[in-house]
Simulated scan of single mutants.
Amino acid sequence: MILDRFKLTDQVAVVTGAGRGIGAATAVALAEAGADVVIASRTAAQLDEVAARVSAVGRRAHAVPVDLSSPEAAAELASTAVAEFGRLDLVVNNVGGTYPRPLLESSVDFMEEAFRFNVSTAHALTTAAAPALLETGGSVVNISSVMGRVSGRGFAAYGTAKAALAHYTRLAAADLAPKVRVNAISVGSVLTSALEIVAGNPELRSKMEAATPLKRIGEAEDIAATVVFLASRAGGYITGKVLEVDGGLQAPNLELGLPDLP
Protein backbone atom coordinates (compact mmCIF):
# COMPACT_ATOMS: atom_id res chain seq x y z
CA MET A 1 0.00 0.00 0.00
CA ILE A 2 1.15 3.53 -0.73
CA LEU A 3 0.81 4.50 2.96
CA ASP A 4 3.50 1.96 3.82
CA ARG A 5 6.00 4.32 2.20
CA PHE A 6 5.38 6.82 5.00
CA LYS A 7 6.31 4.36 7.77
CA LEU A 8 9.53 4.67 9.76
CA THR A 9 9.22 1.40 11.64
CA ASP A 10 12.12 0.80 14.05
CA GLN A 11 14.16 3.68 12.70
CA VAL A 12 15.97 6.08 15.04
CA ALA A 13 15.85 9.87 14.83
CA VAL A 14 17.52 12.78 16.58
CA VAL A 15 15.37 15.91 16.89
CA THR A 16 16.89 19.13 18.23
CA GLY A 17 14.82 21.84 19.84
CA ALA A 18 12.31 19.13 20.69
CA GLY A 19 10.91 20.49 23.93
CA ARG A 20 8.03 22.38 22.34
CA GLY A 21 6.59 23.69 19.10
CA ILE A 22 7.77 22.23 15.80
CA GLY A 23 10.41 20.04 17.44
CA ALA A 24 7.97 18.44 19.87
CA ALA A 25 5.35 17.88 17.17
CA THR A 26 8.02 16.36 14.93
CA ALA A 27 9.27 13.96 17.60
CA VAL A 28 5.73 12.72 18.25
CA ALA A 29 4.95 12.42 14.53
CA LEU A 30 8.10 10.37 13.93
CA ALA A 31 7.11 8.09 16.81
CA GLU A 32 3.62 7.70 15.36
CA ALA A 33 5.30 6.66 12.09
CA GLY A 34 7.26 4.00 14.02
CA ALA A 35 10.56 5.62 15.01
CA ASP A 36 12.38 5.85 18.32
CA VAL A 37 13.71 9.33 19.06
CA VAL A 38 16.50 11.15 20.82
CA ILE A 39 15.04 14.50 21.82
CA ALA A 40 17.13 17.46 22.91
CA SER A 41 16.47 20.95 24.23
CA ARG A 42 17.34 23.08 27.24
CA THR A 43 14.34 22.35 29.45
CA ALA A 44 14.15 18.89 31.01
CA ALA A 45 10.51 19.25 32.07
CA GLN A 46 9.41 19.95 28.50
CA LEU A 47 11.38 16.97 27.23
CA ASP A 48 9.73 14.75 29.82
CA GLU A 49 6.31 15.75 28.49
CA VAL A 50 7.35 14.98 24.91
CA ALA A 51 8.88 11.66 25.97
CA ALA A 52 5.59 10.71 27.61
CA ARG A 53 3.74 11.44 24.37
CA VAL A 54 6.22 9.28 22.47
CA SER A 55 5.77 6.45 24.95
CA ALA A 56 2.00 6.74 24.63
CA VAL A 57 2.23 5.70 20.97
CA GLY A 58 4.43 2.74 21.80
CA ARG A 59 7.89 4.06 20.91
CA ARG A 60 10.96 4.96 22.95
CA ALA A 61 12.37 8.40 23.65
CA HIS A 62 15.72 9.33 25.13
CA ALA A 63 15.73 12.90 26.46
CA VAL A 64 18.90 14.99 26.51
CA PRO A 65 18.63 18.33 28.33
CA VAL A 66 21.39 20.42 26.73
CA ASP A 67 22.22 23.92 25.56
CA LEU A 68 22.28 23.49 21.79
CA SER A 69 23.83 26.89 21.18
CA SER A 70 27.03 24.85 21.45
CA PRO A 71 27.80 22.99 18.19
CA GLU A 72 29.94 20.57 20.19
CA ALA A 73 26.97 19.62 22.36
CA ALA A 74 24.82 19.11 19.28
CA ALA A 75 27.43 16.84 17.71
CA GLU A 76 27.35 14.53 20.73
CA LEU A 77 23.71 13.67 20.04
CA ALA A 78 24.76 11.43 17.16
CA SER A 79 26.82 9.12 19.36
CA THR A 80 24.08 9.25 22.01
CA ALA A 81 21.56 7.89 19.51
CA VAL A 82 23.84 5.02 18.49
CA ALA A 83 24.68 4.23 22.12
CA GLU A 84 21.03 4.22 23.21
CA PHE A 85 19.34 2.63 20.19
CA GLY A 86 22.12 1.00 18.18
CA ARG A 87 21.63 3.00 14.98
CA LEU A 88 20.74 6.37 13.51
CA ASP A 89 18.49 6.95 10.50
CA LEU A 90 17.41 10.57 10.69
CA VAL A 91 18.63 13.93 11.95
CA VAL A 92 16.19 16.83 12.24
CA ASN A 93 18.10 20.07 12.71
CA ASN A 94 15.23 22.09 14.16
CA VAL A 95 16.93 24.19 16.82
CA GLY A 96 17.61 27.76 15.78
CA GLY A 97 16.14 31.23 15.75
CA THR A 98 17.29 34.80 16.23
CA TYR A 99 15.38 37.78 17.60
CA PRO A 100 14.54 40.51 15.07
CA ARG A 101 16.77 43.56 15.30
CA PRO A 102 17.19 46.67 13.11
CA LEU A 103 20.09 46.43 10.67
CA LEU A 104 22.17 49.19 12.24
CA GLU A 105 21.74 47.59 15.67
CA SER A 106 22.89 44.19 14.41
CA SER A 107 26.53 43.95 15.41
CA VAL A 108 29.03 41.62 13.82
CA ASP A 109 28.86 39.49 16.97
CA PHE A 110 25.07 39.31 16.68
CA MET A 111 25.32 38.20 13.05
CA GLU A 112 27.93 35.58 13.88
CA GLU A 113 25.86 34.29 16.79
CA ALA A 114 22.88 33.89 14.46
CA PHE A 115 25.00 31.92 12.01
CA ARG A 116 26.45 29.75 14.76
CA PHE A 117 23.06 28.87 16.26
CA ASN A 118 21.26 28.28 12.97
CA VAL A 119 23.99 26.86 10.72
CA SER A 120 27.07 25.77 12.65
CA THR A 121 25.03 23.67 15.08
CA ALA A 122 23.28 21.91 12.18
CA HIS A 123 26.61 21.29 10.48
CA ALA A 124 28.17 19.90 13.65
CA LEU A 125 25.37 17.38 14.18
CA THR A 126 25.14 16.46 10.50
CA THR A 127 28.84 15.71 10.15
CA ALA A 128 28.94 13.83 13.45
CA ALA A 129 25.95 11.75 12.35
CA ALA A 130 27.22 11.10 8.83
CA PRO A 131 29.04 7.79 9.53
CA ALA A 132 25.93 6.29 11.13
CA LEU A 133 23.65 7.70 8.43
CA LEU A 134 25.87 6.25 5.71
CA GLU A 135 25.44 2.83 7.31
CA THR A 136 21.64 3.05 7.37
CA GLY A 137 21.08 5.06 4.21
CA GLY A 138 19.47 7.72 6.35
CA SER A 139 18.59 11.36 5.86
CA VAL A 140 18.80 14.86 7.29
CA VAL A 141 16.01 17.43 7.44
CA ASN A 142 16.95 21.03 8.21
CA ILE A 143 14.36 23.54 9.39
CA SER A 144 14.87 26.79 7.51
CA SER A 145 12.49 29.74 7.21
CA VAL A 146 10.54 31.78 4.70
CA MET A 147 12.66 34.72 5.90
CA GLY A 148 15.59 33.05 4.19
CA ARG A 149 14.05 33.93 0.80
CA VAL A 150 11.82 37.00 1.32
CA SER A 151 12.74 40.49 2.52
CA GLY A 152 11.52 42.20 5.67
CA ARG A 153 12.97 44.85 7.91
CA GLY A 154 14.58 43.62 11.10
CA PHE A 155 15.47 40.15 9.86
CA ALA A 156 18.99 40.66 8.48
CA ALA A 157 20.63 38.25 10.93
CA TYR A 158 17.89 35.62 11.07
CA GLY A 159 17.09 35.71 7.37
CA THR A 160 20.72 35.55 6.33
CA ALA A 161 21.36 32.58 8.62
CA LYS A 162 18.30 30.70 7.38
CA ALA A 163 19.23 31.41 3.75
CA ALA A 164 22.66 29.99 4.51
CA LEU A 165 21.05 26.89 6.03
CA ALA A 166 18.95 26.42 2.91
CA HIS A 167 21.97 26.50 0.62
CA TYR A 168 23.99 24.40 3.06
CA THR A 169 21.27 21.81 2.54
CA ARG A 170 21.92 21.73 -1.21
CA LEU A 171 25.69 21.54 -0.77
CA ALA A 172 25.58 18.86 1.92
CA ALA A 173 23.18 16.82 -0.21
CA ALA A 174 25.72 16.80 -3.03
CA ASP A 175 28.49 15.68 -0.69
CA LEU A 176 26.48 12.91 0.98
CA ALA A 177 24.70 11.51 -2.09
CA PRO A 178 23.81 8.86 -3.00
CA LYS A 179 23.57 7.12 0.37
CA VAL A 180 22.31 9.99 2.55
CA ARG A 181 19.59 12.43 1.54
CA VAL A 182 19.60 16.01 2.85
CA ASN A 183 16.56 18.28 2.53
CA ALA A 184 15.13 21.33 4.24
CA ILE A 185 11.78 22.90 4.99
CA SER A 186 11.27 26.62 4.53
CA VAL A 187 8.79 27.28 7.32
CA GLY A 188 6.28 30.10 7.29
CA SER A 189 4.41 31.52 10.28
CA VAL A 190 3.55 28.68 12.66
CA LEU A 191 1.62 28.99 15.92
CA THR A 192 4.33 28.14 18.42
CA SER A 193 5.58 29.99 21.50
CA ALA A 194 7.46 32.34 19.18
CA LEU A 195 4.09 33.68 17.99
CA GLU A 196 2.38 33.91 21.37
CA ILE A 197 1.94 37.63 20.87
CA VAL A 198 -0.03 36.86 17.70
CA ALA A 199 -2.14 34.09 19.22
CA GLY A 200 -3.21 36.41 22.01
CA ASN A 201 -4.04 39.38 19.78
CA PRO A 202 -7.08 38.75 17.54
CA GLU A 203 -6.47 41.88 15.46
CA LEU A 204 -2.83 41.03 14.79
CA ARG A 205 -3.67 37.42 14.05
CA SER A 206 -6.37 38.47 11.62
CA LYS A 207 -3.90 40.70 9.76
CA MET A 208 -1.38 37.87 9.46
CA GLU A 209 -4.03 35.45 8.22
CA ALA A 210 -5.27 37.96 5.66
CA ALA A 211 -1.71 38.43 4.37
CA THR A 212 -1.27 34.67 3.92
CA PRO A 213 -2.64 33.18 0.67
CA LEU A 214 -4.12 30.17 2.50
CA LYS A 215 -5.68 32.57 5.05
CA ARG A 216 -4.44 30.77 8.13
CA ILE A 217 -1.35 30.53 10.28
CA GLY A 218 0.42 27.20 10.17
CA GLU A 219 0.35 24.50 12.82
CA ALA A 220 3.37 22.64 14.12
CA GLU A 221 1.87 19.44 12.72
CA ASP A 222 2.04 20.91 9.20
CA ILE A 223 5.81 20.90 9.50
CA ALA A 224 5.99 17.60 11.37
CA ALA A 225 4.04 15.87 8.59
CA THR A 226 6.49 17.24 6.02
CA VAL A 227 9.42 15.91 8.04
CA VAL A 228 7.84 12.44 8.06
CA PHE A 229 7.37 12.64 4.29
CA LEU A 230 10.97 13.72 3.63
CA ALA A 231 12.42 11.14 6.03
CA SER A 232 10.39 8.21 4.76
CA ARG A 233 10.44 6.19 1.54
CA ALA A 234 7.63 8.45 0.35
CA GLY A 235 10.28 11.15 -0.08
CA GLY A 236 12.99 8.74 -1.07
CA TYR A 237 13.65 10.33 -4.48
CA ILE A 238 14.16 13.82 -3.04
CA THR A 239 17.48 15.31 -1.97
CA GLY A 240 19.04 18.75 -1.97
CA LYS A 241 15.62 20.43 -1.98
CA VAL A 242 14.00 23.11 0.17
CA LEU A 243 10.24 22.53 0.48
CA GLU A 244 8.30 25.74 1.09
CA VAL A 245 5.65 24.99 3.72
CA ASP A 246 4.49 28.53 4.33
CA GLY A 247 0.87 28.94 3.32
CA GLY A 248 1.89 30.40 -0.03
CA LEU A 249 3.83 33.41 1.23
CA GLN A 250 5.72 35.54 -1.26
CA ALA A 251 6.32 38.36 1.24
CA PRO A 252 6.36 38.63 5.04
CA ASN A 253 2.91 38.48 6.63
CA LEU A 254 4.07 40.33 9.74
CA GLU A 255 5.82 43.66 9.45
CA LEU A 256 7.67 44.94 12.51
CA GLY A 257 6.87 48.56 11.70
CA LEU A 258 10.48 49.73 11.64
CA PRO A 259 10.59 53.29 10.24
CA ASP A 260 12.68 54.65 7.41
CA LEU A 261 16.09 55.81 8.55
CA PRO A 262 16.39 59.62 8.90
Rank of each mutant, 00 (worst) to 15 (best):
E113C: 01
H167Y: 11
R205F: 03
G240I: 03
A211V: 08
G23F: 00
D89Y: 13
A44R: 14
R216V: 01
S151P: 02
T136D: 01
V228Q: 04
E72I: 02
E135N: 06
K215C: 06
S145V: 08
K162Y: 06
A234K: 04
L243E: 07
L176N: 03
N93M: 10
A35S: 13
A199I: 01
F115P: 03
A75I: 06
L195Y: 12
A129P: 05
N118E: 04
A35T: 02
P65Y: 04
D89Q: 08
V54H: 02
A114R: 01
V28Y: 02
E49A: 15
V242F: 04
V150G: 02
A78G: 02
M147A: 07
P131K: 09
V190P: 01
P178E: 12
A33Q: 03
L165S: 10
Y237S: 08
D246P: 03
N183E: 14
I143G: 01
P252A: 11
E219I: 01
I2Y: 07
D4G: 05
V15G: 09
G152D: 11
I217L: 15
H167S: 06
V198A: 09
V12Q: 02
G240K: 05
H62S: 09
L171Y: 09
L249V: 08
D222G: 13
I143L: 15
R170T: 12
A78T: 00
P262Y: 14
T126R: 00
A224M: 05
L261A: 13
R216Q: 12
A31N: 00
T136N: 03
V37H: 02
F6R: 03
I197Q: 10
S232L: 00
L3W: 09
I223Q: 07
T212H: 00
T9I: 11
P71V: 06
R170E: 15
S206Y: 05
